[in-house]
Design a binder for these strands. Sequence first.
DNA 1: CGTAAATATTTTAAGTCTGAAATATTTTTT
DNA 2: AAAAAATATTTCAGACTTAAAATATTTACG
Lengths: 182, 182
Amino acid sequence: MDSAVSALPLDRETKASERPGDHKDELRLWLRLLTCSTLIETEIRNRLREEFRTTLPRFDLMAQLEKTVVGMTVGEVSQRLMVSNGNVTAVVTGLVADGLVDKRSAPQDRRVQILTLTPQGRKAFKAMAERHEEWIAELFAGLAQPDVAQLFRLLGDTKTSLHRAIADRVKDAASEALKGDA
Amino acid sequence: MDSAVSALPLDRETKASERPGDHKDELRLWLRLLTCSTLIETEIRNRLREEFRTTLPRFDLMAQLEKTVVGMTVGEVSQRLMVSNGNVTAVVTGLVADGLVDKRSAPQDRRVQILTLTPQGRKAFKAMAERHEEWIAELFAGLAQPDVAQLFRLLGDTKTSLHRAIADRVKDAASEALKGDA
DNA sequence: CGTAAATATTTTAAGTCTGAAATATTTTTT
DNA sequence: AAAAAATATTTCAGACTTAAAATATTTACG
């Protein structure tokens, strides 16, 4: 039991006892991460609008559909993009109206809607994706390749930490809800 | 493993930096950065709603105002949060209606609106900020302290790279626009 | 001085986004 | 098989967001 706890070097208890109440470093890290993310998003949004008269949500949705041959359900897209189902429905409506996406209910389960890029959508996405990749490279051009690799690795660790913290909290809420049941 | 790789043409097996036209590493880095950012935002949004019945944009705006004694103009807040002026106006309208923010035009320049937290707003923010800091620390708890520091540093380099790439493009657009003038 | 340019903010129209309720369909239970 | 539970999506109301146009005010300049 003891060993299991000490195997987690930075859990809530340990950290608090080392620097009680101070989490400024993590806060500053988060703000900097957010700044980078916002700068990139805004820039890509601007370029998509100027060069292709489209929006980031549309581009992102098409990017998901481009990854598959058989199509993707609304729920799957929603999960991958980490947005609500209702949002996917709304964006898809626009893309279908513009002939870029096809939507049809699955024959074996009529609850499910299967989304695919139309040939026109596939072609349009291809052109955008090529430029998009160039833009991203430009934006990160000031970083040396080893820094890119290391940043990628550290953000991988961050992702793991986030998923774990979020899962833990969900578990806590569930056991909390069960308290009075038995 | 080796055979599969060496079956590819030579330029395919070399590093990305040596492959002209390939920017997949940067693209994957951006997607991972976005994932982290979205995971944190969504989680904070959920907790703010559940624990304080408020939203992230409101929290962010109040966080800016909390940093100053003399107040901040709409434009200043807009710049710091990297959102449009109109957006600040909209969010402020709600906060003023709830008595959390005070808005008054500057006596020496009546174009300018000066925003401050009301005493009630200051108190409400203080409570939220304390919890917020804990949440962020929890989310990053899986990272060792040196990793936090290094990630912070690398994101600083990233920020520099982004600002430079964005400034360069603005400059290009400006000189493009001037081409036929002289 | 008086007008033009610059600056700060608000308004507008349209799109994005959310959580929750409603709907439609399939699966499980009785 | 009928009822209940589970699943997938859409609808809804409301908040956020943007870019661009409109408004209000100040500053620059002729």
